[in-house]
Nucleic acid binder design. Structure first.
Length: 270
DNA sequence: CGAATCTCCTGGAGGC
DNA sequence: TGCCTCCAGGAGATTC
């Protein structure tokens, strides 16, 4: 499940494609979260890739006449191949470049998205209402405190709300709250400024720790076994229901919040 | 408007 | 080994 660090590592892995020109696009299955534009081949052919940026979990590939938006959803993986290889199951999209390199999207669950924005000044509704980047300077304790004051939900729900801050998925929401010693069930509006300081700090370190771990696996991006941007990590609470807390040895609890699993230590987190 | 719920999809795990 | 059920989840769409 690509979280923000995986998306960023994926973006970094695509950088070798900068200044390359598209020769062809093959859509094998365009039925993702939204349909892949059927005319993407005609749109992208002969266009040069100028920039690769990221906003939230969206990878933005800027070409000469517009922007290709890529989202990995739950199970999406982008892989860069030195040359064409026979596609396997769930390999839904290929973008081929003049160098012979092929960018391939595999997404078994098809929650991902590939969209085209025509024009360079154009914006997209998907990107318009997003909160600040968690690793950016705009995400700080005073901002978070102010936002949470108007939220009538539990802190874990608020932390995953992309209007508050982007890029914090289910795993890192639980992890950051554990590290900040805050109960996921605490009403968002009850967090003190001090708790917001701790939480912002832990969100940033949790994400950048994962980013650093992911950076070391970057070389695999060009490899054949498709480990692109994915890395093993040991979690404090996520997926550890019933196992002893790594700090106090109390069994980790699992609850549902907003149809999603939340993991926490009932003793360490208040 | 905010909050809660629904929805898309497939692979993997567990039960029998 | 096969079949069934359940679960996982990003985040926009829908409903209340």
């Amino acid at each position: 499940m690509p979280e923000l660090p995986e998306v960023e590592v994926t973006r970094l892995g695509l950088l070798p494609l900068l200044q390359q020109t598209v020769t062809s696009v093959t859509i094998r299955n365009g039925k993702l979260r939204w349909p892949i534009p059927a005319d993407l081949h005609d749109t992208l052919s002969q266009q040069t890739l100028l920039q690769l940026t990221r906003r939230a979990k969206y990878i933005l590939a800027q070409f000469e006449r517009g922007v290709l938006i890529l989202h990995l959803g739950m199970s999406g993986r982008l892989r860069l191949m030195a040359q064409f290889e026979p596609p396997q199951k769930h390999d839904h999209l290929d973008i081929q470049f003049t160098s012979g390199q092929v960018l391939r999207l595999r997404d078994p669950r098809r929650f991902g998205a590939v969209l085209w924005i025509d024009g360079l000044d154009a914006t997209h509704p998907l990107l318009n209402t997003l909160g600040p980047e968690p690793l950016g300077q705009d995400f700080h304790a005073h901002y978070l405190h102010r936002q949470l004051k108007k939220k009538n939900v539990a802190i874990k729900i608020a932390l995953m709300d992309s209007h508050v801050v982007v890029g914090i998925g289910n795993i890192y929401a639980s992890e950051a709250l554990f590290r900040a010693r805050i109960s996921p069930q605490l009403p968002a509006k009850k967090l003190s400024l001090k708790q917001c300081e701790a939480l912002v700090q832990e969100v940033k370190t949790t994400l950048s720790d994962a980013l650093i771990a992911g950076g070391s696996s970057l070389r695999d991006f060009l490899g054949a076994d498709n480990k692109a941007g994915y890395f093993q990590q040991s979690y404090f609470v996520y997926g550890r229901t019933g196992e002893p807390c790594r700090v106090c040895h109390t069994p980790i609890m699992q609850i549902k919040q907003g149809q999603r699993s939340t993991f926490y230590c009932p003793v360490c987190q208040k």
